[in-house]
Amino acid sequence: MNLARRDVLKLSITGAALATLPIGTLFPARPVQAAYPDNAFQAKEVAKALQDLFGTTDTSAGAVKIKAPDIAENGAVVPVTVSTGMDGVESITILVEKNPSPLVAHFELGPRTAGYVSTRIKMGETSPVIAVVKANGKLHTASKTVKVTIGGCGG
């Protein structure tokens, strides 16, 4: 995956790519840090995003809680909180199945960090919100459908 990423970066010599490059290359041994998963963020399907991010799509329903509104009046600002009581949480990922690119956010958590993140996301239309928690090397998932009355990805 690293090789592919490097190739992609070499090809796309944009200011943005150059500016973000040193973060990954200067500190390869940082404990929590992974390279920015460009491919996963560009993926158009949930399965593809998971494959790019974790190298597997093998998930099981687990003790993951999603707190989000049943109906979001404004798709541009949907508060989402993901929490889990599991130990050894390595990362929390939030995806929206029907967004143009399903992967919304990926949080790498340190060993001292609790299995909890809260943020606000955009949703284009009514869709399941999927949370994936990586704990002790395994992927646990949960999903919750949020109805959107006004989309967040238009003008």
Binding site: S101, V104, E108, R112
Partner: peptide, 13 residues
């Protein structure tokens, strides 16, 4: 120590 690193896409508000 990095306690939390967030990678975000365009769909964060």
């Amino acid at each position: 120590e990095k306690v939390c690193v967030a990678n975000w896409g365009v769909a964060v508000s």
